[in-house]
Design a protein around this nucleic acid. Structure first.
Lengths: 233, 233
DNA sequence: CGGGAACAAAAAGTACGACGTTTATGTCAC
DNA sequence: GTGACATAAACGTCGTACTTTTTGTTCCCG
């Protein structure tokens, strides 16, 4: 599952980012650039570019004479989709999944409420389509198909909210949903109640029922949180 | 207000980031590394590191044979505090301020509700202290002092929520509050109603009144949105 | 014996030049 | 007109040399 090296830089960045996100280098630990260069068998130039990117994500801090020191988790840019991906691939996936789901529970109801007011007819149509797609794939081990519709559904709601910050959370939600499907024990079909809620949410948005959309989204969020409690105590 | 160039890299990054965030380079426009190197009078090495960082923020995309192309706004990592700062310094500050305030209105009530449940005695004490500080500085043109207390107050609530994603939004909230104070016409003292709400919010958190804390925070958010509507139509 | 100033070393920061790699684009033949 | 091929433009990578900052150490003076 490693990145297919579409450039040396990408490969090293991904490897180092994963290591740090996984906690393999404790905060305060120092890495030296030429050491890394040797280790990955690349030039110091490439390493320095990687370090700069990691630094912009606040994963590390580079200081002269001392080296590249790993920063504590509290400093990280945890909203960076790249960082999220690295963390979800690591050891503290459960905690990460939980805090992201709580974030969703705060954002998505408000986004749905706004979407009910601002959604274009096209968005409403696609939303309904996706909801129906979820129904169609909700039985018979079609988890991948279901996931695709689910992601698209939530992305449409976030986009339709008309708020840029909400819209850009689509990638995060996609990561969460994908993580839930792929890495949790999910032999069974999705919860029928959740499927129904999505259908009703599509209706509420189409009818411009802001309060209803908000309430339904909250229910979906509660369900997701509950699911986490049951599967990952 | 430009960064005092604690390194060539930082200077160029800040300059270019500002330009792009301000829309001086339209999406699709290409920049060439040699050209930039000449323009800023630095080596191509430095420029490439800057480009890499900008690329990690999805502000630009670097492709062989074509150059560094500016990406559309929808692709940007709008949660990156650095990007937020650049955008707040640019032309679409009003829109940016508005979408961030809407984001706050979604996050902070939930965070306050969680804070009411999880806040430690120390956090409660400091919260009360900050609320009193806001009262003390709410009259007589002590805007800077008020701002400091306000920022600290909201930061504590976000931290006390116990959710990492919420906590990391403290920087964003700080930028919004600072932007509001510094760049809007704010001759007058803060709204007394808002001050009162903060005091009551501190009480609610201290008493573990989750519902009350959520409601009060919503009121604060509504006030902030209203203020935006009045001052920046 | 203690403290401060000069000094030395270590590591990142910067520069430069050369070469490799990809890929858009235009040309030429069919 | 279409397809293969050559070309060149831009980024990608490398190695080396030099600069700057920080830090630790040593040594001299009080």
């Amino acid at each position: 599952m490693t990145t297919p090296a579409q450039g040396l830089h990408t490969h090293v960045l991904d490897a180092l980012g994963l290591e740090i996100a996984a906690g393999e280098h404790l905060p305060g630990q120092v890495l030296r650039t030429d050491e890394l260069a040797r280790r990955f068998d690349v030039s110091r130039t490439v390493v320095r570019e990687v370090i700069r990117v990691l630094e912009s994500m606040h994963l590390v801090e580079s200081r002269r004479r001392v080296g590249v020191t790993v920063r504590p988790t509290e400093a990280w840019n945890v909203y960076d989709p790249q960082v999220i991906r690295w963390r979800l691939a690591g050891a503290d996936r459960p905690r990460q999944l939980r805090s992201l789901t709580v974030l969703r529970s705060a954002i998505e109801p408000v986004a749905a409420s706004l979407a009910a007011r601002h959604a274009t007819p096209e968005q409403c149509a696609e939303l309904t389509e996706r909801a129906l797609g979820m129904v169609a794939t909700s039985r018979g081990q079609q988890l991948e198909g279901y996931l695709e519709h689910d992601i698209a559904f939530h992305r449409i709601v976030l986009n339709a909210s008309g708020n840029e910050m909400f819209a850009r959370l689509g990638d995060v939600v996609a990561e969460v949903l994908a993580g839930r499907t792929h890495h949790q024990v999910m032999f069974e079909d999705p919860d029928p109640a959740a499927v129904t809620l999505h259908v009703r949410l599509a209706e509420a948005v189409r009818e411009g029922d802001a309060a209803g959309a908000e309430r339904l989204t909250k229910e979906i969020a509660v369900g997701a949180l509950h699911e986490l409690d049951v599967l990952a105590p």
